Computed example of a mutant assay.
Amino acid sequence: MALFDLPLDQLRAYRSASKEPADFDRFWSDTLAEARRHDLDARFERVDTGLTAVETYDVTFSGFGGHRVKGWFVLPADTDRPLPVLVEFIGYGGGRGLAHTHLLWAAAGFAHFVMDTRGQGSGWAAGHTEDPVGSGPAYPGFLTRGITDPEDFYYRRVFTDAVRAVEAARSHPLADAARTAATGISQGGGITLAVGGLVPDLVALAPDVPFLCDFPRAATVTDENPYREIGNYLATHRDRRERVFDTLSYFDGVHFAARGTAPALFSTALEDEICPPSTVFAAFNAYPVEDKQMEVYDFNGHEGGGPFQQVRQLRWLPQRLA
């Protein structure tokens, strides 16, 4: 499709109108403190994938509420020293998938941890983690589950799982905890930004076409799901607009980005109607670290840079994790 969002020069200066809650930091500090009352109990079980160049572990750890969350941990075969760690988060609707599909980062010499996303994993890649927490009425999808109260919102659980995933990855004896980075595409990119704002000692972030950013603009500038789930919900619950956007403000990638401390490599695509480029630039422009870069793909949609962005990351990440 043709370009639909702001011109690139305006994107580079765009700032979100999302209002940060006064108790944002306390909310997340309390949330994580509550989660850490449960033993992390990270368990790594070696699995036979039929591959000889990597070693793969089926991981289970305690996330939000002590709920057990799954993951994969993949290493180059015969590793005998701690390696830099890359924690990856998955896009909307997908799960961790099959173990043999995660080879790139182990082949590049990383310890690669892939977090399953609770309650998802039936859209395009299989998941294995349930979400045992219910919610009030929601529009089909995940974005409006518990959307009238930050305490109940679905992504409170997911972001907490993600912080605990970093802790689980670092707990393995072949992980160099001091050299930990995070990455993800779309929803995974949004989770990456949240982790970057909640875990202060990461050494790099690589969010691609991130979702969950600049909710006030995203909900009104695109008709595409998942952001359209918000509008569809409010079309029925006409009296809940203020409550909904108050909840979303606790989960906006713009506010997590403002707390980032690690070098970051972002990407966006100017024809992306699912995660509009203005919402991605909103997070990027709020990111306070001097060592940050934005890759722009002019004629792509939500697929973004795809393998071209992987090439970019394969050159950029090792420099930060050396």
Rank of each mutant, 00 (worst) to 15 (best):
G50A: 04
S267M: 05
M294T: 08
A22K: 12
L314M: 13
T236R: 14
R37H: 06
A169T: 04
G121A: 06
Y92W: 15
T268C: 14
L265K: 01
V195R: 00
D149K: 15
K19H: 01
R217Y: 12
E20K: 15
V209S: 10
A42Q: 06
P263D: 10
Q10R: 14
A181D: 08
D41R: 11
A182P: 04
H112M: 08
P200R: 01
V244Y: 06
R217Q: 10
V254C: 04
A235S: 13
P76Q: 03
D201C: 04
S186I: 06
A177Q: 10
G231P: 07
Q293K: 11
R315E: 12
G71V: 01
D239V: 02
A264T: 13
A257P: 07
L193I: 05
S171I: 00
V280F: 08
A169G: 08
A162G: 11
L270Q: 06
F73T: 00
V254Q: 07
T31L: 00
L103R: 14
G50P: 09
V199C: 00
C213S: 14
L11N: 09
D208A: 13
E295D: 14
T268Q: 08
G196L: 02
L205T: 00
Y154I: 07
Y297C: 10
R46W: 02
S267C: 11
F215L: 12
P132D: 04
T220N: 14
A162Y: 08
R320M: 03
Q187S: 01
P76D: 02
S267Q: 13
G65A: 10
V163I: 03
M115Q: 14
T247P: 10
A138G: 03
H302D: 11
L103D: 11
N232H: 09
Y14W: 10
D5I: 01
T192G: 08
G196Y: 03
Y155D: 09
P7T: 05
V203N: 05
A258R: 10
F211G: 02
L51A: 07
T49E: 15
P82G: 01
Q319G: 06
N232E: 14
G188T: 09
V87D: 03
G50E: 14
T144V: 04
N232F: 09
T261H: 13
A282T: 03
L3Y: 13
P140H: 13
R46K: 13
G197A: 05
D78K: 08
I274H: 13
E229G: 01
T220L: 13
N225T: 05
L8S: 08
R170N: 12
G97Y: 13
R145W: 07
V280M: 11
